[in-house]
């Protein structure tokens, strides 16, 4: 397992992050137009002084490695639009809120998705299956930007049951989490249903049935382990989607998260802020994908063995 993890980190996680950093840094620095360009033409001396102050007059490789060196020490550079503020402090101020929203939404999606998926797989083409899959279809075809306002309108403004603004009390979390998590709950429900149905056709399940084990016991103790594997693989992309999807939900429910920072940076062309966010999200994704791989290896001894052999072979 340790060898597997080591292999995964050295040969996949680090190169991915490096490529991401190099690619986005090059894009930012080679893009036409100075980061300081605005409606008002700046005199060339001012531009030169600005470039020197931010180290942008150095050769590209020097700039790049200086930037990477800074990132490794937790310094994502200065904001080019808000003098005196660093990208790190801009991000850190808002990140916890977005992470919390993403975390609850992921939990909600897993819980609801698995429940619906397993329910559907118990009796394929039965009433439970149709209801669960209809719900899943609704969740997929009604994106967060539609579901959020509709939920806010019905449960907030018309029925006045739940708050629709802010991020203070636990009740504030309910509608945003449902809005953000429902699409992913739907995908998880579909994947869980497919995975469970496939697992239930296997020989060992037939053996378990012939031994007279109860159907519920088989479902939870035997089939679930194999059946959730597609769901676990999906958690990597899901986590990434939740993080960016949160921007829309934050706007709808007036939640002070990272989305506003990123949108404003994009509108103001504050390049280092966006660059920092790209790297941060990339690191999250790599972290999550590694976690998912570990989870899959724990669930499935086959993966564990081939991964170990591959690691031995390559390393």
């Amino acid at each position: 397992m340790i060898r597997f993890l080591f292999h995964r980190l050295v040969f996949q996680a680090l190169p991915t992050l490096f490529v991401l950093a190099a690619l986005s840094f090059l894009l930012v620095r080679l893009a036409p137009g100075s980061p300081f360009a605005s409606e008002r033409e700046l005199p060339p001396q001012t531009l030169e002084a600005l470039n020197r102050a931010y180290g942008l007059d150095q050769p590209m490789p020097v700039q790049f490695f200086r930037y990477i060196g800074g990132v490794l020490r937790g310094d994502f550079g200065p904001s080019l639009r808000m003098p005196g503020r660093t990208v790190s402090e801009l991000i850190l101020a808002k990140l916890p809120v977005s992470l919390e929203l993403g975390f609850w939404s992921l939990l909600y999606a897993i819980f609801v998705g698995l429940t619906l998926g397993i329910l559907a797989a118990v009796k394929p083409n039965g009433f439970g299956d149709y209801s669960a899959m209809t719900l899943a279809l609704l969740g997929i075809c009604i994106p967060a930007m539609v579901m959020g306002p509709v939920l806010a309108l019905v449960f907030g403004l018309w029925l006045d049951w739940l708050p629709v603004m802010g991020w203070h009390t636990p009740a504030d979390r309910i509608l945003p989490v449902i809005t953000l998590g429902s699409t992913y709950a739907s995908y998880i429900a579909r994947l869980a249903r497919g995975g469970m149905l496939e697992e239930l056709t296997r020989d060992y399940i037939r053996t378990a049935r012939s031994k007279g084990l109860t159907e519920a016991g088989i479902l939870v103790k035997n089939a679930l382990r194999g059946g959730v594997q597609p769901v676990v693989s999906f958690l990597g992309p899901a986590a990434a989607g939740l993080l960016t999807g949160a921007f829309v939900v934050e706007q709808i429910f007036f939640i002070p998260g990272l989305g506003e920072t990123i949108v404003n940076a994009a509108l103001n062309r504050d390049q280092f802020v966006i660059l920092g966010c790209v790297l941060l999200f990339g690191a999250f994704m790599v972290f999550f994908n590694t976690l998912v791989d570990v989870g899959l290896a724990l669930l499935n001894p086959k993966i564990r063995m081939t991964a170990g052999r591959k690691a031995k072979h390559e390393g």
């Binding site: 190169p15 991915t16 894009l27 930012v28 893009a31 993080l243 960016t244 999200f281 790599v286």
Partner: peptide, 20 residues
């Protein structure tokens, strides 16, 4: 492709929009 897959591509599109 594997490496590109692991990039946060929605943010990458936002980055492209910022630059041009």
């Amino acid at each position: 492709v594997d490496v590109l897959y692991a990039l946060p591509f929605t943010l990458f599109v936002i980055l492209l929009i910022t630059l041009f």
